[in-house]
Design a protein around this nucleic acid. Structure first.
Lengths: 240, 240
DNA sequence: GAGTGGTCTAGACCACCCC
DNA sequence: GGGTGGTCTAGACCACTCG
C-alpha cells in the first residue's frame, strides 16, 4: 500500500531523487519555478512548497532574483540528508540493526518538582519511571532514563519496554508524537554507567535531554539519554 | 529604523507576544484561522504561514479537524524559545556578555583532502587556518578551529579575528550566511585544550563540527568548536 | 454532520539580482 | 530593465476530529 501523498510532497520527492542520483548536480541551478510548474503540471504555490521542503532538508538554496541552486555538498553528505527524522528515538535511528534492550528499572513514582513542571503535571501525580540499556549488535550504546505521566499513557505493559515504546504508543494506543524539545550536553559517565556501557578509561557521553509532545500539545515524556561518545553523532541542518 | 516586515511575520510576532506574555495561556486553543483572518485583516494563507512559524519555533501545535493549541510548556522554556538563531556563532550567542578572543594561530595552508571535499575546493587551493580561544567575562569557554577558502573570502584582515568573523563577512564583505550543517559529539580535551580552557580533572567537551554555506549555496567555512561541557548546552526543537 | 486545518489554484504585485 | 523568487489574495475542495 503506497500512501497517498500531497502533490508538493511528490514533487519534492522527485527533485530530491534527481539531486541524490545526479540528475541535478552540485552547484547547478534548478529549473525556474515557472518551468517546474509546467514540468509537473502544478501551480506555482505548490512548486514553492516542494522546493521549501528541500531547503529545510539542506539540499538547495533559493535566491530571489537569481534562482534556486543545489548546495555544494559532498556526495557522502547528500546521501545522509533527510535520512534521520530523529523521531521514534533509538529504535528508528538504528532501524535495520540488531537491537537489544535491557530493562534496568521499571516503577511508578511521583515526579520531582522539575519534572512535574516540564511534564505539566502535579507533583502528586504519578509517572512511569524507566531505565533501559539499549544495545546494537549486542554492544551497549546508550542508557535511557524515561518518565511518562500515567495520566496520558494509561497503560504500558512491561513487555513493551523490551521493544520500542514509541511504536507501541503510535500503533497500539493511537497516540501521535508531534514534536520534541531537546538539549544536548557533554558529560562524564557515572561509575554505574561506565559499567553498563562497558567503558574502560575515559570516555565522555553525549547527553540528550528531551521533552516530547503529543499531537494535543501536551508533553508525554521527559527523558535523558546518555550515549557513548564514540557511537553517537547528532546532526542538525539549520537555516537562517 | 524599523525593518519592514512581511505581514505573516507581523502576525506571527503578535501571536508570539500574546503567548509569551500570557494573552494565550498554555494548553489554550488559539482563535480559528478564519477568526485570525478577520482579527488581523489578512487572508487565510497568510494566517496559516504565520501560525506555521510558531509551529516551527515550538510554541503551538495544529490539529486538522480540531484547532490550534498552545503547547503545554513550562513558562521558563517559553521565554527561551526562538531566542537563539544559532547563527553568528559565538559572538551572537553570547551577545551582551563581555566577550574576549585570543588568536592562537593564523596561517594560510592547503586543506586536507577531507576538508577540501567538504568545502568543495581542490586540495591545492588555499584556506585560512585559524585557531581561536573565546572567552566570556575573561573565562575561556571554547576553542575554535576554522578553515575558510581564500577563493571565497578574498580578504580577512588579521584584526577581524579579534572580533566576529561572521559580522565582518556580512557587514563588510556583504556576504550572506544562509545555512549550516552541524554534527555534535562528546569528546575529551587534549592536554593542550585542558590548559587553554582551564580544565582541571576530568571534563568532557561538546564538539560542534560545522560546514557553513553562503547564499550562493557554496560552503565558506569548515569549523570545529570544542566547548567546555559545563558551559554549553545545544537546544533543538524538532517537529515531525 | 458540522466544523477544523490541509492542499491547491490562478493571478497579482513586489523586492531583489544581475546584466 | 528583464527576470528571479517572495508575498499575498480569494476561493475551492478535501481529510480529519468530534460530538
Amino acid at each position: 500500500m503506497t500512501e497517498t501523498q500531497a502533490k508538493y510532497q511528490e514533487v519534492a520527492g522527485c527533485l530530491r531523487n534527481e539531486i541524490r542520483h545526479g540528475g541535478y548536480t552540485v552547484g547547478q541551478q534548478l529549473p525556474l519555478e515557472k518551468e517546474l510548474c509546467e514540468m509537473y503540471g502544478v501551480s506555482r504555490t505548490t512548486v514553492k512548497r516542494a522546493v521549501d521542503v528541500l531547503v529545510a532538508e539542506g539540499f538547495v538554496v533559493k535566491r530571489r532574483g537569481a534562482g534556486t541552486f543545489v548546495k555544494a555538498l559532498d556526495r557522502g553528505i547528500v546521501q545522509h540528508l533527510n535520512q534521520e527524522k530523529q523521531f521514534g528515538g533509538f529504535t528508528e535511528y538504528y532501524a535495520g540493526y540488531d537491537i537489544g534492550t535491557k530493562v534496568l528499572h521499571y516503577a511508578v513514582v511521583h515526579p520531582t518538582e522539575e519534572v512535574a513542571r516540564l511534564l505539566m503535571i502535579e507533583p502528586d501525580d504519578f509517572v512511569y519511571d524507566i531505565s533501559r540499556l539499549r544495545l546494537v549488535s549486542g554492544k551497549p550504546i546508550v542508557v535511557e532514563y524515561t518518565q511518562m505521566p500515567l495520566k496520558r499513557i494509561p497503560e504500558l505493559p512491561k513487555d513493551v519496554l523490551n521493544h520500542s515504546i514509541y511504536r507501541y504508543l503510535e500503533n497500539e494506543l493511537g497516540l501521535r508524537i508531534q514534536s520534541a524539545h531537546r538539549r544536548l550536553r557533554a558529560v562524564m559517565p557515572t561509575g554505574e554507567e561506565k559499567e553498563l556501557l562497558g567503558i574502560e578509561g575515559r570516555m565522555p557521553l553525549l547527553e540528550v535531554t528531551q521533552t516530547a509532545f503529543l499531537a494535543d500539545g501536551l508533553p508525554f515524556e521527559y527523558s535523558i539519554s546518555r550515549h557513548r561518545g564514540d557511537k553517537m553523532v547528532y546532526r542538525v541542518v539549520s537555516i537562517r
